[in-house]
Amino acid sequence: MPPRALALLLALTSAVPAARAAQSPWSEKAYGVLLVGPDGGGDWKLFVDQVKKRLGKDIPLEAFAGPLEPKSLQKSLDRLQSSRARKVAVVPVFLHEDSMELAQLRYILGMEKLPSRPFLEAWGMTRRVVPRVKTKAALALAAPLGSDPAAAAALARLAKDGSRRGTPEAVLVVGAGAESDDENGTRQKELDALLARLSKDHGVARARGWLLRPATKEKPRQAADSAKGLKDVAQGLSRGGRVVVVPWLMTRDGSTRAWHRILENPFLRWVEKGLLPDEALARWAADRAEGLRAEADQVRFKDAGQALPDAERRKNF
């Protein structure tokens, strides 16, 4: 082969891998994904498999579910770092855009200065300094599910499965309300947006929703009043025929049993599962992760951890 032809062939051959690398946004730097969910179990594992399939084998994926505990989160990040991930997209598979779990996750990742007081109070940890995770990888946090169209699609699928006759005419979405009026108001806005999507995008003629709020010291009758309101809504819907009741939960938990006891109505058909697993939500999680690939490192606080301003550390901590 003439020297000039050989040189041209070598140049073209070496350019192919570079061109392929330039076409793949993931190949510019090692990248990993961390899914964080509120609960584990079989449904969560199936969902993780769905996301893994969508991301592909070249993107390392770790999944954490359960109470937010820095030690276990640290192990997940360590495994991603061992996979040579120099950047990690953290996708919180949470229902709500505003929650104490999300605030605590931001603190543990180093994106907020102080921990979530409601979270620490709920777990009896106000006198502790909860440590942050440490990693050499850049961290970027996605927004939770909220009123995303994927959530409406998952609710519509459950309603259709529950009706056994195609798209039901009436759907009642029941979720857990919050103690505070502000947080509950945020959840109500999310629920209202989802109900509108059920009607507009998924053909549900009558879609209603209700948040069951817990009692508090300041409002001891809040739970009873909320339960009565749910009964009234269900009774009104059932006058027009059978109603499919869909729990607004990621995975089914013990709260649904209490909700069943509140609504004892022969015209109600309950869906006996949560939103996960679901292909629309798996696509949402994969898209959220991919959307973070160009985000800068969001870690702002790299100290070992902070106590609440008025909390005393335990003597032996």
Results as ranks from 00 to 15, higher is better:
153 A>K: 15
131 P>R: 03
81 Q>K: 10
56 G>S: 09
309 P>S: 02
193 A>H: 12
73 L>S: 06
240 G>K: 00
170 A>N: 01
88 V>E: 12
58 D>E: 15
13 T>V: 02
174 V>S: 01
309 P>I: 01
235 Q>N: 04
208 R>I: 01
5 A>I: 10
298 Q>Y: 05
129 V>T: 10
23 Q>K: 09
239 R>G: 00
131 P>Y: 00
273 K>Q: 15
133 V>I: 14
10 L>F: 13
180 S>P: 03
179 E>V: 08
268 L>M: 10
295 E>K: 02
309 P>Y: 04
185 G>M: 03
212 L>P: 00
106 R>E: 15
186 T>R: 11
32 G>I: 02
116 S>Y: 00
99 S>W: 04
282 A>P: 14
270 W>I: 05
144 P>K: 12
291 G>R: 09
56 G>M: 03
241 G>Y: 15
172 L>A: 08
119 F>Q: 11
70 P>F: 14
206 R>H: 14
154 A>I: 02
153 A>C: 02
32 G>L: 04
298 Q>N: 05
250 M>L: 11
169 E>N: 13
8 L>N: 08
285 A>R: 11
280 A>D: 15
200 K>T: 08
22 A>T: 03
235 Q>R: 14
144 P>I: 06
284 W>E: 06
234 A>N: 08
168 P>H: 01
67 P>F: 00
209 G>L: 05
137 A>L: 08
111 M>A: 07
21 A>Q: 03
111 M>Y: 15
217 K>L: 13
40 G>L: 09
274 G>W: 01
198 L>N: 04
257 R>M: 06
11 A>H: 02
288 R>T: 08
93 V>R: 14
35 L>P: 00
172 L>C: 06
97 E>L: 09
305 G>Y: 00
266 P>T: 05
67 P>D: 00
45 K>H: 12
28 E>W: 06
94 F>Q: 15
43 D>K: 10
